[in-house]
Design a protein around this nucleic acid. Structure first.
Lengths: 230, 230
DNA sequence: ACAAAAGTGTTAATCTTACACCCATGT
DNA sequence: ACATGGGTGTAAGATTAACACTTTTGT
């Protein structure tokens, strides 16, 4: 009874990036194997002597050449026995955020191609990656309201209007500018810099930055980041 | 590179029960193997042709003879390479709730013994089960505030005071009786019955029941269960 | 001068918190 | 009559929601 198990374990990463007021997902098209010429999430099999975390980071590096700002375990998909046509695979999915604006994707060892796709222009995906992606999108939406993960999708210094648009875009709702600014500033974890953005038109706007250390300190003392708007 | 993987995949269940104003956890002591004479979570290896969900339910049945009221995936523990001394094991942990008051545990095929332990009187646990348990406890605490999972720990009909004590116990804080009752009743998902509890002393109290169908309907319309008290 | 985006305050409504006394039963 | 737990309302304070005009720059 003990050792007859023949199940493979993989990790997959849903990497979200944000650019041009759009939420993007990182997909790759592999050179070899069953996945040849199909778009898929970054991912692969776990090595015997490597942690799940190391496996994801390795795949992210090998297949797309990136380091992410935020990474957490999302869900383990293992109820679909025919997920992978080759053999039973259980996939531990991870959820990752990057500031994609200036991110250069280099298709490295395993990948033939790596590209950002806006969420509303997705190609057909391999396996059950479509449904994994939906789970991830829901997670992102809810995380946004109770953890300061939005900043991981923006450059270190950003305009308030960018932060606001990010929230509107991802949560798919309108947000009142004044109330949003008031609320965010009331937390005391976003600071004004001396610099200004470089938009072409309109009144110049100050750049802001997120103070992660301060957030951690406050969070330990019981502070709860929380944004909820009608 | 493809198929040399030698990792075993297991499921474990953290089953919480509630009785006598205490939160309990279901632990088992196995007959055979490395786990002989050690208390551990219900769990075991996944079969090749069985979903993760089926695996957990099977183990719950085989090792403790129970059906749970609530079951959800908790987290996949796979970063500790030496978790199991025999070989690399990745464990998908599930989180389960039962009304344990009248639950008869029958040690079935695999288990030598199955018992409820109050959270503050735990024995030493096998593997990394102690830390899995802590993750589960945190999950329970937070779930309690944004999903009506408390009802899954109580009998179908319960006293308001029982519900309140359950919240106090699990969240480890004092709650104002009037505010609590007002809040819960305002949701409209808990209904008065005609029956009364059978406490020995004090004024007789009505039994209430949770209307799950109504909750589901409301939840679909955007209703959010939410309990937060200082 | 006009277009474009940034910046800013107030008020009404709602929700949350704090708090204490009477009620129905068993002994 | 007393002990035990059940049941109830209100007022002050905090938070949220709704709402529109002025400012600064480039063209």
């Amino acid at each position: 009874m003990e050792l007859k198990q023949n199940i493979k374990i993989a990790v997959d990463a849903i990497v979200f990036g944000y650019a041009d007021n759009k939420l993007n997902v990182l997909l790759i098209k592999q050179k070899y194997g069953v996945l040849k010429n199909k778009w898929a999430l970054v991912g692969g099999f776990v090595k015997d002597d490597e942690t799940l975390n190391d496996a994801v980071n390795r795949e992210l590096h090998e297949e797309a050449g990136i380091k992410v700002n935020y990474l957490e375990q999302l869900y383990t998909f293992g109820d679909d026995l025919d997920r992978d046509p080759r053999f039973r695979v259980i996939s531990v999915a991870y959820f990752a955020l990057v500031n994609s604006t200036k991110l250069v994707l280099k298709a490295d060892t395993d990948a033939e191609d790596a590209r950002w796709f806006p969420l509303d222009e997705l190609p057909a995906l391999a396996f059950d990656h479509q449904s994994i992606l939906q789970t991830a999108q829901k997670r992102l939406q809810s995380k946004l309201t109770y953890q300061p993960v939005g900043f991981d999708l923006l450059p270190k210094e950003f305009l308030f209007s960018e932060l606001e648009t990010l929230y509107c875009t991802i949560l798919e709702k309108e947000i009142d500018r004044r109330n949003f600014r008031k609320k965010i500033l009331s937390f005391g974890i976003v600071e004004e810099t001396e610099k200004f953005g470089n938009k072409k038109s309109g009144r110049p706007a100050k750049l802001f930055k997120f103070n992660g250390l301060k957030y951690n300190k406050l969070a330990q003392e019981g502070f709860l980041f929380d944004i909820n708007f009608a």
